[in-house]
Design a protein around this nucleic acid. Structure first.
Length: 571
DNA sequence: GCCGTTTTCGGCCCGACTGTTTTCAGTCG
């Protein structure tokens, strides 16, 4: 039983209890517990098995919920949930996905009309039965009819790179609107989460109407969903929804802090404020009714005795304690990057030559790159066998001799085959400067087989790094089933590095696994996997991911000079 | 249901917007 499965059980319990009009604080307790469990790297069964650990030491887990976790881990289910499900059919929970419809309305419709699915709801709304209910009306009925199709598909999250592109363009255009002083992205996009569920944009302006008009008429905006004095919600053509908030200039820092989130981070901030006799909202920090901070985020954090926290860390995963103790990590930046160690050329499936890639790297301020074309197993990409690879390396030598400013390493992205052997002979790999071992095929093999492949690669003295370790494609393909604890331990033992593949579709390792590598002292390399010159521009997204993992310049191997990097490599 | 050097009871983060209402409940972020 995985932690996220247990977390989902508690979330469901929260929803079901809320529909039954349970004590809202009891509902919140289940949701808090769910978040705590989902964010934990250690599994619940390990904690139960550990005589030195107690479930009730976890935040928001008391005697009662601790017992329930034990029952779930032991039996795989929870009688309380099964009972509730008998009272409330699963289709009732589906109705919660309709925007504007929450647990109270769902409960009312289920109890009075017996509506227990999206289909039944549609029929009831079309028959005009919804508008007759107490607390409902024509508009609510129409809202249901307008949104029921959308609710029947699970909500989508968009990859950061795509969401940010739209948000950046809108922010730029809002800055040109009348009266707008500042405009910025907030929310999960500012925190650089790998996927984004909606966009938040914050504006300070002397003319909020003009800012809202500018957004309403923006070419990326499909329709306006909600519009008030200070808040407007729109739907973009991409399907994403965007919230615009307009605040006065003196509240800018407080509003940025508030709307950047995360929710979990902010709850802790506001609790700290209450402890100090203060109140924090999007307009500032208040003692009684007196504004004492709000113009900058730094002021807001200082008011609750904390250092400013980089947005990427605001997830209530220990950053508050670090901000209190002055131990926040100095996160790696794009400007720190000196090398890019995963890229392709026309020798296989890249679109540019060795020299063109080196020139592109130079333009981006890099000092060294590794050319790492595919090995022969990737026949679709015209992968290299030993003979062609050695010829390819000769070409790299030739370019290196005449090209200055960027050193080019002779590399290879070598497949780890389904039978756990490597795609190229050891004597050939031994001649390389840089060997990336990767899984491309057989990603769905059972954990045991996958594990054997990865461990074999890690133990091979020619392998320097595991590239895109899980093989996942965000939103499209789950990664391989890997025992990371064992893999990372073996990597640490054999001096093998781990990649954060910066491609926005991959971002592999994810933030949690990258953080685990940092804890074990495994050097991380952030590389672009570029297949063209422009492909190198995604480095930023890998850096975002590293920042979310709390990585500093020193945790990332390709931030140092080539000499420093070679020293790390020789360990 | 959780939590505690002001507490084992009585609190629990905060505000905007909408619709159904004549002052507020529900929903959302």
């Amino acid at each position: 039983m995985q932690n996220d499965q247990i977390a989902r059980i508690f979330d469901q319990l929260g929803d079901l209890l809320e529909i039954q009009k349970a004590n809202p604080f009891r509902v919140r307790a289940y949701r808090n517990a769910s978040r705590t469990i989902a964010a934990l790297s250690e599994s619940m069964s390990d904690i139960i098995a550990d005589p030195d650990a107690k479930l009730t030491d976890l935040d928001g887990i008391g005697k009662d919920l601790g017992k329930k976790i034990e029952v779930i881990v032991e039996t795989g289910s929870l009688p309380q949930l099964d009972e509730l499900k008998e009272q409330i059919p699963p289709g009732v929970l589906d109705m919660l996905r309709i925007p504007g419809i929450g647990p109270k309305k769902v409960g009312a419709m289920f109890e009075t009309l017996g509506v227990d699915s999206l289909d039944a709801l549609k029929a009831a709304a079309e028959a005009g039965e919804i508008a007759e209910l107490k607390g409902f009306g024509k508009k609510t009925e129409q809202l249901i009819l307008d949104n029921i199709e959308r609710a029947s598909v699970a909500d989508v999250r968009v990859r950061l790179a795509e969401a940010k592109k739209d948000a950046d363009r809108i922010v730029d255009d809002l800055l040109a609107a009348d009266g707008v002083e500042q405009a910025n992205i907030a929310g999960s996009c500012r925190r650089r989460r790998e996927t984004v569920g909606d966009l938040d944009v914050l504006v300070t302006s002397t003319n909020s109407g003009a800012a809202m008009d500018a957004l309403a008429e923006h070419p990326l905006v499909e329709s306006v969903l909600v519009r008030g004095e200070t808040k407007q919600r729109v739907r973009l053509f991409s399907g994403l929804e965007l919230d615009l908030r307009v605040v006065p200039d003196e509240s800018y820092g407080a509003a940025m802090q508030y709307f950047t989130g995360s929710k979990e981070h902010n709850i802790v901030i506001r609790r700290r404020a209450v402890d100090r006799g203060l109140k924090v909202n999007e307009y500032g920090v208040f003692r009684d009714d007196e504004l004492i901070a709000g113009r900058t985020e730094e002021d807001v954090y200082a008011a609750v005795d904390l250092a400013w926290v980089p947005p990427e860390l605001r997830e209530n995963r220990g950053e508050i304690e670090q901000a209190e103790n002055g131990t926040l990590p100095e996160l790696v930046t794009l400007a720190d990057m000196r090398g890019d160690l995963h890229m392709h050329t026309t020798a296989t499936d890249g679109r540019a030559t060795i020299r063109e890639m080196a020139e592109a790297a130079k333009e981006r301020g890099l000092k060294y790159i590794a050319i790492t074309d595919h090995s022969k197993r990737v026949s679709m990409a015209n992968g290299l066998d030993e003979e062609r690879l050695r010829e390819h390396w000769k070409e790299i030598d030739a370019v290196n001799e005449e090209f200055t400013g960027v050193e080019i390493l002779k590399g290879i992205e070598c497949d780890i085959l389904e039978d756990a052997t490597l795609d190229l002979a050891d004597d050939c790999l031994a001649e390389a400067d840089w060997v990336i071992a990767v899984l491309h095929y057989g990603l769905k093999q059972p954990r045991k087989k996958i594990q054997k492949r990865l461990l074999n690669a890690v133990q091979n003295p020619n392998v320097d790094i595991i590239g895109h370790p899980t093989g996942r494609l965000i939103g499209k393909r789950d990664g391989a089933d890997i025992d990371f604890t064992e893999l990372f331990k073996a990597s640490a033992d054999h001096g093998v590095m781990m990649e954060i593949n910066a491609h926005p579709n991959r971002l592999d390792l994810n933030e949690f696994h990258a953080a685990a590598c940092k804890d074990l002292g495994i050097p991380i390399v952030i590389s672009t996997d570029a297949h063209s010159q422009q492909g190198m521009d995604v480095m930023q997204y890998g850096v975002y991911q590293a920042r979310r993992a709390g990585l500093t310049k020193n945790d990332v191997a390709n931030t140092g000079s080539l000499t420093q990097f070679r020293k790390l490599l020789a360990r």
